[in-house]
Structure formats: C-alpha cells, structure tokens
Design a binder for these strands. Structure first.
Lengths: 360, 360
DNA sequence: TCGATTTCTGAAATCGATTTCAGAACTAGG
DNA sequence: CCTAGTTCTGAAATCGATTTCAGAAATCGA
C-alpha cells in the first residue's frame, strides 16, 4: 500500500550541475556550451571566455554517460591479464595505464587467473561497458572470444608474445627464440646434461610453453633431446621451483645446467641447490626468464632473459590509440629481448672432467 | 565544397543490435525486453524464455552508456594506488577486482606514483567517468582531493591503513603498532643497538612513516631513542636496502638489529650483510615488513610482518558495494597483522658478551 | 457467468550531451 | 545605404535503455 521510499537511492545529494545550468547562467544555449567544450575554435573568443568562466564557477563536468551515448566513444580501454601478482604483468599494466592517461583514456582492468572461460566472461563484461579497445595477454584465445571481439568491432592487441593467431596483432617478444638462444649459450659453454623447469601447468600459459619448446628445440638440434624426466612441470611459485630442482637432481644427479622458464622458479631452484650443497654455478648452472628486480641481486646474480614489459605496455597503448583514431597501425611488433649473462651460469666443472664428448 | 566523408569514423561496422531489434524479433515491446533483463521475476516465464532466446540469438548486449545515463549508476569503481609494481598493492587490487567482478562491477585503475598532484588528477578523471565508488591508499590526502570527493558525493574508502583523517573510512592495519610490536620483540630478545631502514623518501608514503614512528616510539619508551644517524632513509628498492645497510653498519659497527619498513629493503640488507661477511642472525638480526612470497624462502627466512592485502581488497569492495546500496557500513576497519618470527632474528651474540646492561 | 482484483504488457517520457539545420547577426563590396 | 556572403548561435532531433502510467488480459469469488 504505502510505498515509503526506503532510502534515497541516489547518494549524490546535490543534483549535479548540467550543461543547461551553465547555459542559463551564461545566457547562451546548451549547444554553445557544448561547442565551447568540444570545438573551442569555432566560438567567438569573448563568448568562449564568458562561458568558460561559468563552467569553472559551477565546477561543471560533463556526464560521460550521456556523452558516450551520443558519440559512441567511451574513451576507455580494457585490459585482461592472467594475474597482477606477477611483477612482469603489473609493470606492463602500469606503463599501459600511464600512457593511456596521457591521452585522456581510462583503463579498465580485469584478470583471468589463467582461465580462458573467465577471460571470456571478463571480456564480455568489458565490451558491455562499451570499451573502445582491448588489451589481452598471450597467443592462445578461444574462438568464442575472437568472434566476440570481431562482432563488437573493437580494436584489440595481445601482448607479451611476438605473434598470435586469428588475425590478432601482437606486441611482445619471441619467447621460443629467447630460450633457444639461452640454451645455445649454455651448449656453447659446454653443458651436455640439461634439465628444464617449466610452469606449464596452466592450460592457457602459452608463453611458458613456447619457452619450453625453445629449450627442447635447441637441445634436439644439438642431438641432446630432453627426456620427459628431465622436464619438471611446475606451477608459478618459488616453492615449486625448489621441489622441482630437488626432483631433477635426484633423478639425474649428473645434471649440470637447469633452465627455468621464469625467474621465480629459478630463484626457488637456486635456494634449493644451496640447501642441497650444490654450488652455483660451479656444479650447477641455473638460468631464469623475466629479469625481475631480484635476479640481479641474487648470490650469485641470476642469468636470465630481460623482457621489456614497460615497452610492451606503452606500445599496446599507442597501438590502440592509433587504431581508434583510424591511423595506420603495424600488424605485429616483435620487441627485442635481451639475454643477461650473470654469474649463475658458467662452463660445467665436469666439462673438464669428461671433455666435450657426448658418450657416457 | 564537396564534403567527402574522410574515413568512416565508426569502427563498429555492424550497427550494433539494440533492444528494439530484440523486441521486434520477439514480437514484444522494448519495455518487456528491458524487464526480462532487469526484473526477470515480474515477467511471465514462457514470455521471458522466448525473449531470452532471441536475446541470445542476436547476441544482444545492452549499451551501458545508455543504461548509465538513465539509471545514474555506472556500476564502476575506481582505484588509485601509488604503484602496481609492489606486490602488496597488486595483490590487493587483484582481490578487489575479483570481488567487484562477482557483483557485476568493473574496476577502473590508476596509479599516482606517490604523487599527490597526480592522484588528484587521476581522481578527477575517474569522477568525470561517473564512477560509483573510489578506493584510495594511505592516510594522507590533500584537502583539495577530499573536497572533490565530497562534492561528487561518491562513497570512498582508503586502504592499507587502519584510520585516516578527514572523515574518510579506512580498512587496513595499524602500521605503527605493528613495527612497535616488532621492535619490542627485538628488545625482549636482548638487542640494544638498533638501526632502521625506512623508505620515507616519497612524501605521501604515510604507511612507511607510521612504521618508522612505531620503531622510534618503542625504542624511546625503552630508553634507547634512535639517533638520526641510526635511521637511513631509502627509496623503494633492493639496491637501496643494500647501500642503506652498508651505511648503517659503517657508521655504527656495533649494531645488532636492523629493522626495515619493507621486505624489499630487508632483503637488500640481508644480501649486503652476507656480502660484508656479517652473519644473519648471529651478528645481525634483520626484520622486514609485508611478508612477500620471497621472505619465507630467504636463507635465513626473514622475520617480518604479514599484511592481509587480499583481505583489504575484498573488504574495500564489500564496503563500497554496501555503501552504494545504502546499506549500513562500518566507519573504519582495523585488520589484524601478524608478526612472523623466522630465523633472520635472534638474540644478539654480543648480548652474552655484555649482558643486558645499557651502559657502554 | 459477471464483475472485481490482480497480473502483465506497451506507449511514451526521460536521462544529458551532441550536432544538424536553419536562421540571425554581422562584414564587406558596390 | 543596400545586398551578398560569412560567421555564429539556438531550437530540436538524436543516441539507447529504463520506467511510469494506464490500459489489456487473466484470475478469482460469488
């Protein structure tokens, strides 16, 4: 019966000043105010100044919803990363946000926890929000997701990989070639007994999978293909790096080089090696990937691959800004990675003992 | 003269399916479609199912701009953190995002780089976007910023601190009391020669400042006030932790306990201590703050304070969701921190040598 | 079976800024 | 001083979804 308004549902107590209020104060039409804001050059200077004064007086800010509705542009970009807990993604997102902010864009953020279904849902939610562009991570995305993007007609770019399928442009590094180079470097040092620790548990982590493939390919090419037991699959954590190393050297005590697909795993591996009394790099060379801050501070400092995360973020921002503006954009960008040789890798001690022959 | 349309400015090639299209297909009015979407329970089930089928067939998604315009709610929250590069913030943001996502909210993210002016600008940009709530970090915010928030009438909460001024509710831990407890613990172990490494360079970092105050207060209370030369101010980095420790033990070779305001500094300090041949904890106890993943994996494992970052993020999300809904909300929430005693701290070796007397 | 409720549905107004179109004001040339 | 041409400004339509209001249909009791 009596419909008492439970609680005033609008927390905005002041009814928000709108363009009409400004227009009335300045004694012009709303159209003129809009022009002052959007095309200042076509309004007579004195009038423009007068309107501007009133805009400032009333602290008027235009309602972006109404604006977006009419113009069809939200000035908003969305990004979906697997997780923010990894410094490498946090760094990229931060750079992305900074660059977008300079251009008047705002960044929606979501995370998929390495789950493709979740990625799809988050994307759906972002597209409903009317984003003007989208940033993804990695090369493996479901068909469903790609068709959603296509249907929405939103420019997209994927990051941290140098190329991706489905006609999606990419900006990042060639992960496979990076680990291949790293492996070849270790081969040149004289190593013949390898182990690999790879975080390939998450189904959608194509970066780590590519890294593992780079290792395998280089070793196959060298006639030293990795046996399954020489590859320990891990999740993403220090603790897993520890246990993986233990398993590896237990199964293959003669291992002289361990290649990890992330620094976190490598750091865990180094900690465990020390605990097991294995000197790094004297008896065991260990390498990582990502070049996190800690890598250089380890004892010994970690040999790793440096990933230009900030550059990836900036590049993705620039790409989308241009794509939205209709400017020409590159198809994909392969950014250079950098092998950082530090002291966690060295020629194998056993190399002197048994020479470079391959027989056992 | 001839006004050729330069480039089709709308990248959406298909004209986007709207509610009217669905209505026509389903042979109902737009109003009914809207009701199916927003109040399914008041629509006759069979009709609802029919409409739903067409919604799915056409892959209809409502235009959030139009929706926001009419309803005045964007279903969007903004967060401004100092930086994402710190795991502790990344973790909190991730938890925040996850919880918001569950409730149909989307998260705008921005970062201030510890710069109050920048924080203000980003906030302005977020408010123009019509966000429904805002999450900040820390207790020190300019008056300008507070009045902007008040004027916008947007609910706000600040995080990582247990209380904040200006009537802004907070959720987080009491940083000062945490370091005070940590210091008292070291005092109980018998330490009398302290040093502190604090990242208080950034003007707006009130968390670290509070932590430093906690140390100072505990030591003053114990009759061992810290001299300025026993406090090394640092920025946020491992390298600074290293150099700070070197400076500290150079100026005060008899130091037995070093309290750092972040784990990163502590880890740098430990690395430098090892390099200088100072055994931890035998000759030097070192403690950190944050309990990052690496802390437990150090050698020796680092004594530190665990900060419930995920809980802070979730709590902030819940607070805002309730505040927006008009539900009652707590004023501020002090979350429990946890002192994690590991092996980087121990009684001073010199304690045996010189007893617990305070004279020198 | 008829009238009184109750339950649903549709037409139309609304949110606030933008932009087209046309007309007003002004300038310049004759 | 008048007309042609320019430059500006305002009225009104528009973007797409939501929601009020009133009317249609269905349900119920007598």
């Amino acid at each position: 019966m009596d419909k008492k308004p439970v609680i005033a549902p609008k927390s905005r107590q002041q009814p928000r000043v709108k363009i009409e209020d400004v227009a009335r104060k300045a004694d012009v039409s709303p159209a003129t105010v809009s022009r002052v804001l959007n095309h200042p050059d076509i309004v007579r200077p004195e009038l423009r100044d007068r309107v501007m004064r009133h805009i400032n007086d009333l602290a008027y800010t235009r309602d972006s919803a109404a604006r977006a509705l009419k113009s069809g542009r939200m000035r908003t970009i969305g990004v979906i990363v697997p997780t923010l807990a990894l410094g490498i993604f946090a760094e990229g997102v931060e750079a992305l946000q900074n660059r977008l902010s300079e251009s008047g864009y705002t960044l929606f953020i979501a995370n998929s926890q390495y789950d493709q279904r979740r990625e799809f849902q988050e994307l759906r939610s972002l597209i409903e929000r009317g984003i003007d562009g989208i940033v993804l991570v990695g090369a493996s995305h479901g068909r469903e997701l790609r068709s959603l993007i296509e249907q929405a007609g939103v420019p997209v770019i994927t990051t941290y990989v140098a190329k991706a399928g489905g006609g999606i442009p990419a900006i990042g590094i060639d992960n496979e070639s990076a680990t291949r180079e790293m492996t070849e470097y270790l081969l040149r040092l004289g190593h013949t007994r390898f182990g690999a620790i790879a975080n390939v548990v998450a189904a959608s982590n194509d970066r780590s999978r590519a890294r593992l493939e780079g290792i395998q390919r280089a070793l196959s090419d060298a006639g030293l293909p990795l046996k399954p037991s020489q590859i320990v699959k891990a999740d993403y954590s220090l603790a897993q790096g520890r246990s993986a190393l233990r398993q590896l050297v237990t199964d293959h005590p003669d291992t002289t080089a361990v290649i990890c697909t992330t620094d976190t795993l490598a750091i865990g591996a180094m900690a465990e090696a020390r605990k097991m009394g294995l000197a790094v790099p004297a008896t065991l060379s260990i390498t990582g990937f990502d070049d996190v801050e800690l890598a250089a501070q380890m004892d010994p400092p970690l040999t790793t691959v440096s990933v230009p995360a900030a550059e990836i973020g900036r590049g993705a921002a620039d790409y989308l800004i241009n794509a939205i503006a209709g400017s020409p954009v590159p198809k994909s960008v392969a950014l250079p990675y950098r092998l950082v040789m530090r002291s966690s890798s060295a020629p194998p001690r056993s190399g002197a003992r048994r020479g470079r022959s391959r027989d056992h």
